[in-house]
Design a protein around this nucleic acid. Structure first.
Length: 426
RNA sequence: GGAGAGGUGGCCGAGUGGUUGAAGGCGCACGCCUGGAAAGUGUGUAUGCGUUAACAGCGUAUCGAGGGUUCGAAUCCCUCUCUCUCCGCCA
């Protein structure tokens, strides 16, 4: 959530910054609500102070009245009157505060000044390109044809077991998929300084509010039919980032990596990527999450992005990096770099990782803070996260880029130790 | 699923209706003491919100969460939640 103090002091500037995200901030509404809030809060707290003071003195007043033989009922009635005046003011304050809270919870993070203008994906800015797309002496197949022919990908049975956008993997393809996850996890642990965490795959509403999936994006989530309001995680970002919800952290930075399945309802994307495993309701992802001091989040984003890139480079998969434009930027992010891997079947680069700085936006929603050693003050931390990488899409990329004319797939060198030294999938 | 016991500050632990944001201890910070240290000793040591130039003062909230009773609730009542113990079941 955006710092309410910033909204009060610099409303036009915030509204202007949010326009880059194509969000129209209703400044008049906010000002009106906040003016009301201030007025009502001062009134309610004043009445409460009066009531507290009266309660403290009533013992003596009753004692004195009794000594004189006076009726003590008027004294109690006075207390009652104070209570009712306060409760009325309190109720009116609550009403306006909950309106402000809803408004704040639906307001996206402020994009960083360096974020390019633009409306959609096509306005994203390419900032890096690595590797050469492979050239084939035959016409390359897509991962569906390759995987089905190898008996490793089974979309029909996935659909039978569950429904569309689910798949089953088998044999050496399933092994390749598992090897990719293990390789990514191990690399981040041993080479990039992350600590492994295992978390629940089902989260509550508070956690989703904390990272920003709720209240606005309920439709993207799978919700359990249960009175407890539980949801399947759409990304490990949710459970991992919420580890420190409502906590004050002593030692920063903290770097976690977590391999989980992710569940997305993909509502509203019915026509897109219907073929293959690019867009599934369930996919595996290795997620990196960093908790850092406010001053250090931009360096952390650069750092984390190179960690994701190194996975692609070790796998020798050609990719490019784009900086998302304002219109394509997610709700909670201040800035995002997407990594896109080359897919021969589509002759294009497709998203395989998304690395973002959320500044203090998630931390404010989660109330995650740290004690600034130099100032002694408690401050909100910054959160930075990114995929390192989406495992399903990496499988697609390996299959397509490493395919051979006979339909077999060469195993990338770095994966062989994870696959019992298997060199070719056939 | 059944039965019972509990959730108080960074930690331990008092506190069953009225100067309790909360005794006491530990830890931590700073000072005194000391040649230096330990011991001893003194002071301080939660977070949010509001007001404010102020991280000064003042006000307000918070004793798992929410609701209720009362002039007044950490203390009484209700609901939820989490933890622990025993039985059952089970990966």
């Amino acid at each position: 959530m955006i710092d309410p103090k910033l909204l009060r002091t610099d409303l036009p500037k915030v509204a202007e910054a949010l326009r880059k995200k194509h969000y129209e901030l209703d400044a008049a509404l906010f000002t009106r609500l906040d003016t009301d809030r201030k007025e009502r809060q001062i009134k309610a707290e004043g009445l409460q102070a009066e009531r507290n003071q009266y309660s403290k003195s009533i013992g003596a007043l009753i004692g004195a009245a009794k000594a004189k033989g006076d009726d003590i009922e008027p004294l109690k009635a006075q207390g009652e009157a104070l209570k009712h005046a306060f409760l009325e003011a309190e109720e009116s304050l609550q009403a306006v505060q909950s309106k402000i809270e809803s408004l704040l919870l639906e307001m996206p993070n402020i994009p960083d000044g360096s974020v390019p203008n633009g409306k959609s994906e096509s306005d994203n800015l390419e900032t890096r390109r690595w590797g050469e797309p492979p050239t084939f002496t035959f016409s390359p197949l897509d991962h569906v044809d390759l995987g089905v022919a190898l008996g490793g990908l089974d979309f029909d049975r996935g659909a039978k077991i569950t429904g569309s956008r689910f798949l089953q993997m088998r044999g050496q393809i399933a092994l390749l998929h598992r090897a990719l996850g293990q390789f990514m996890l191990n690399t981040h642990i041993t080479e990039h300084g992350y600590e492994e965490v295992y978390t629940p795959y089902i989260v509550n509403r508070e956690s989703l509010l904390g990272t920003g999936q709720l209240p606005k994006f309920e439709a993207d989530l799978f919700k359990l039919d249960d009175e407890r309001e539980y949801y399947l995680i759409p990304t490990a970002e949710v459970p991992v980032t919420n580890i420190f919800r409502n906590e004050i952290i002593d030692e920063l930075p903290i770097k976690f990596v977590c391999h989980t399945p992710c569940f997305r309802s993909e509502a509203g994307s019915y026509g897109r990527d219907t073929r293959g495993m690019i867009r599934q309701h369930q996919f595996d992802k290795v997620e990196m999450v960093q908790f850092v001091e406010a001053k250090k989040s931009w360096a952390a984003l650069d750092d984390l992005t190179t960690h994701a890139q190194s996975i692609l480079e070790k796998l020798k998969l050609p990719y490019r990096r784009v900086t998302l434009c304002g219109g394509d930027l997610g709700f909670s992010a201040a800035k995002t770099y997407d990594l896109e891997v080359w897919l021969p079947s589509q002759s294009t680069y497709r998203e395989i990782s998304s690395c973002s700085n959320f500044t203090d936006f998630q931390a404010r929603r989660m109330k995650t803070r740290y004690r600034n050693a130099s100032s002694g003050q408690v401050e909100h931390i910054h959160t930075v996260n990114g995929s390192g990488l989406a495992v399903g899409r990496t499988l697609v990329a390996v299959m397509e880029n490493y395919q051979r004319e006979d339909g077999s797939i060469q195993v990338p060198d770095v994966l062989q130790p994870y696959m019992n030294s298997l060199r070719v999938i056939s």
